[in-house]
Design a protein around this nucleic acid. Sequence first.
DNA 1: GTCATTCGCTACGGTAACGTTTCGGAATTG
DNA 2: CAATTCCGAAACGTTACCGTAGCGAATGAC
Lengths: 195, 195
Amino acid sequence: MTKSRVTGRPRSETSREAILEAAFRLLVARGYAGFAIEAVAAAAGAGKTTIYRWWRSKAELAVDAFFHATQAELRLPETGSAEADFRAQITELAALLRGERGRALAAMLGGARADPTLAQALGSRWLEPRRRWGVARMTRAAEAGDLRPGVEPDAALAVLYGPLYTPLLFGGEVPGPAAVAAYLDIACAGIFARS
Amino acid sequence: MTKSRVTGRPRSETSREAILEAAFRLLVARGYAGFAIEAVAAAAGAGKTTIYRWWRSKAELAVDAFFHATQAELRLPETGSAEADFRAQITELAALLRGERGRALAAMLGGARADPTLAQALGSRWLEPRRRWGVARMTRAAEAGDLRPGVEPDAALAVLYGPLYTPLLFGGEVPGPAAVAAYLDIACAGIFARS
DNA sequence: GTCATTCGCTACGGTAACGTTTCGGAATTG
DNA sequence: CAATTCCGAAACGTTACCGTAGCGAATGAC
């Protein structure tokens, strides 16, 4: 957006990372309510001014911090059968959401009930891309005749992803590999046609 | 707990109900973060003192308000087949969670990420009783041989209830009757043995 | 060396809700 | 009537965080 400056003191990459990491830690430890700009600045050894200069809102900082901790770890596979694709993607997602990143996401989703800015940022940067992929992949599977008769793509996606996200709502831990496999066995048996 | 008083001015039932209803309205309209004791008192035409006298915490007031609006509308059926029992109970729960009560519950679940008191109150008064019923019913079904081979009760419950609660997490609307039936068709096909 | 810009730091006024206390008055019992 | 308890209203000091401003020091291009 801003024309790249050639003069003046350059932005400190050290501070940027310290802020993002401190924000993530705080999000995990105290939730979105206890996630205050002042606390982030203090924990990062940075000035409040520096944060306000580079992030427009608490919401943007939170989402940035989450992505900074997450990197591009998640693939959206497009090979193999639909069932294999979904199983792979959900298993990977489950692994990501276990532990700190899951708690950070839960904190943000909880906070999004009170902060529309956050809801919007989270929707456009996390939920929507994933949902788009899921709908597209499931629709392709339906057209290829891979689904049991009468199965609607939306309902199938709800059954596949619902059990994964529910623990974030209730404060529990995201299921481990064995539990994920167990529920996927059930869901896939109801969704995909057996050859 | 307290010995029943025989003397003095009796507690005003009018105030009690005005407070519970104002609390529910505020919970629906502004979420748990915007749910302030002062605001409840003002909206109810009551004094803060009165609220502090009868409720120990914000969390207790919120949960009480939710139950006051919910009454005992929910049955936990025990007749017929396991599949019929779960379908009936989930359909009823979905109807309850649509609209205001769903938003109130979503607000509280979101707030529970930040307020352990609320998490505990909500767990013991709402989640636990329901979960207990579900586990018991599903275990009985397993013992009766009504489940497809290899289906674990915990995983089956996750598949049945996950899609219902997920919208509360993402801020969406709880599915309507048709959508509930559609996802239950899929889930039940994966869980219950066909005779 | 000069200049533009960012840095961490400290301080400020403003807002919001907290939880407590005090008050005069109203409602019951006996 | 007296004793008791609850009521709504108002005021209090406290805590937490907001967003902004100004400081001297640091940094790097020119």
